[in-house]
Design a binder for these strands. Structure first.
Lengths: 152, 152
DNA sequence: TCAATTATGTTATAATATAACATCAATTTC
DNA sequence: GAAATTGATGTTATATTATAACATAATTGA
């Protein structure tokens, strides 16, 4: 479960940040992409592409799979959302400006996902890939289990 | 690229180990499951489920998706193979007896996957989940990039 | 303005995975 | 050893996830 009090703030923050970053980068956060980002941020839980598509269809009944997947691609490329590979699902990024590598704590019970960064983990990954003479490109670290709020 | 000299040895090892573990556990490594495990071990590269199905069809033309997926499920449950979530692919496990958590170094160039264990990584994961009061269940750590042999 | 680029619309289909029910084989129990 | 139970496989159908390919529209920039 997330601790945000007024979730609207989370959504607005996410949209504003995305807007700013897009301007900096000279890429366009179009109406559609905004809408999709907003739909993803509907909650702190992960969302599936086709659920998103259903949501989008309520707004624009002509939406089709490529509509969603293209927006998802754009949002991922720019770091506004992440794909959770172990779930084939997507989630809004809580700090699109800052991180390099991050990892996810996925609650099997409440579906909430916590996005975390850890210098420690980065170091270990770097050192272990170094030992293997491996040039890392992308790190996927997803930890599923039971979150704080669901343990009791 | 893998360093095995006679890959047949890898396959035989994998099958023998699986056999022994199944006996210990009182579960059955049926003909079909053996065949699928052998097909997965055809190389050290990862394999896709439907490629596997095509291979299996050459042996038993009546094979269908559930044939493969059931065997894959069994082999995963017993730790003889792993699913690589970032690729929707499967790979034989190199040490089904020993490890708890492991991680994968996936070469984008040659498709080889190195399965590694690191006490260090386990510790960091434990400590970081602990800090978040998170009860971990399953850890997915997949690092893609360029392997030693493909860097030059 | 028109050429090039980028974004979106649209149709179709590819790729991945599972549900549901039938049958067969092995094991246990009486 | 026959019947009952369990586990494995066969089979049909379909769900879920994702992309290719081509058409059109909007935007940018020379």
């Amino acid at each position: 479960m997330s601790n945000c009090k007024t979730h609207k703030t989370c959504i607005n923050e996410a949209l504003k940040t995305a807007e700013i970053i897009c301007n900096e980068r000279g890429v366009k956060l179009t109406k559609l992409r905004q809408t999709v980002l907003k739909l993803i941020w509907k909650s702190h839980n992960y969302v599936k592409a086709y659920d998103l598509l259903d949501d989008l269809k309520k707004i624009d009944s002509s939406a089709k799979p490529p509509t969603i997947y293209r927006s998802l691609d754009f949002l991922m490329e720019n770091g506004f959302i992440h794909k959770i590979r172990s779930l084939n699902a997507f989630i809004g990024c809580t700090h699109p400006n800052e991180h390099k590598e991050c990892y996810f704590l996925i609650c099997d019970n409440c579906q909430n996902i916590e996005e975390c960064c850890s210098e420690q983990i980065n170091k270990v990954v770097t050192s272990t890939t170094g030992k293997n003479h491996f040039e890392p490109n992308q790190v996927t670290l997803e930890i599923s289990g039971i979150c704080q709020d669901c343990i009791s």
